[in-house]
């Protein structure tokens, strides 16, 4: 692979990619911890998620700043330009995923204080799906793998279907036992947050396709030719 003649520029771009990956790893860990805080009823883990969020927010600021500097000082073109615009976009998605993990952790802390509900297997499955979607999206970014990114886009349907199934299960539970409403509603929020994490993963995957191919696959129906 050819590298930039200006090695300082090459370092800036590598640094940007590396910071994005650090941030991606960090939010992935936050999702895992927040869900485990719930399923293992471990509120300590939930606290750790809140701490991680501060680091993720710092990374967002740092990456945005780096992008602005590269634009101002290097006037990036072609794939470099696409990397910068991709970074600016996905950093927002990753930061939002971090916030959603925090929301899940807060629900977990709340739920851990109450009696556990009957087992709800689909929730860990939904969590696993959401995590694997984000993991695959980030991996497709690292490997510049369009096929893997496209797979993330199609897999989002599974996540949505599982969310609907879980939604109906929880609704059923609430109808049968009204004293579960508060806890079941909390779980419903958790499920919704996981489903949203999946949406952010698809956003990342869409940007990876743009990064590699230069074609914007978002909002195909809103596209006006040209």
């Amino acid at each position: 692979m050819t590298t930039h003649t200006d090695r300082a520029y090459e370092r800036d771009l590598n640094n940007l990619r590396e910071r994005l990956l650090v941030m991606g790893k960090r939010v992935q860990a936050m999702i895992a911890e927040s869900v485990l805080a719930l399923t293992a009823r471990d509120s300590k883990l939930a606290e750790h998620v809140l701490k991680s969020d501060l680091a993720v927010n710092r990374l967002e600021l740092e990456i945005d700043d780096l992008c602005r500097k590269i634009i101002a000082l290097r006037q990036p073109a072609a794939s470099d330009l696409r990397l910068i615009t991709t970074a600016v976009k996905i950093v927002t998605d990753l930061e939002r995923v971090g916030d959603l993990a925090v929301n899940i952790a807060e629900r977990a802390t709340d739920l851990n204080k109450a009696e556990p509900l009957p087992s709800y297997d689909d929730l860990p499955r939904l969590a696993e799906l959401a995590q694997s979607q984000l993991r695959n999206a980030l991996e497709s970014f690292v490997k510049r793998d369009v096929v893997q990114a496209e797979r993330v886009l199609t897999s989002d349907d599974f996540l949505d279907a599982l969310f609907v199934k879980l939604f109906n299960e929880l609704l059923q539970l609430m109808m049968e036992e009204s004293k579960t409403i508060r806890r079941a509603t909390s779980l419903l929020f958790v499920a919704k947050h996981l489903e949203r994490i999946g949406d952010h993963a698809t956003n990342v995957a869409e940007m990876v396709i743009y990064l590699v191919k230069g074609t914007d696959v978002r909002h195909p129906t809103s596209r006006t030719g040209g």
Binding site: T2, T3, H4, A77
Partner: peptide, 11 residues
């Protein structure tokens, strides 16, 4: 080759 030139990757 164009990509390399406009991104400054000429060795």
């Amino acid at each position: 080759r164009t990509e390399d030139y406009v991104t400054g990757k000429f060795g």
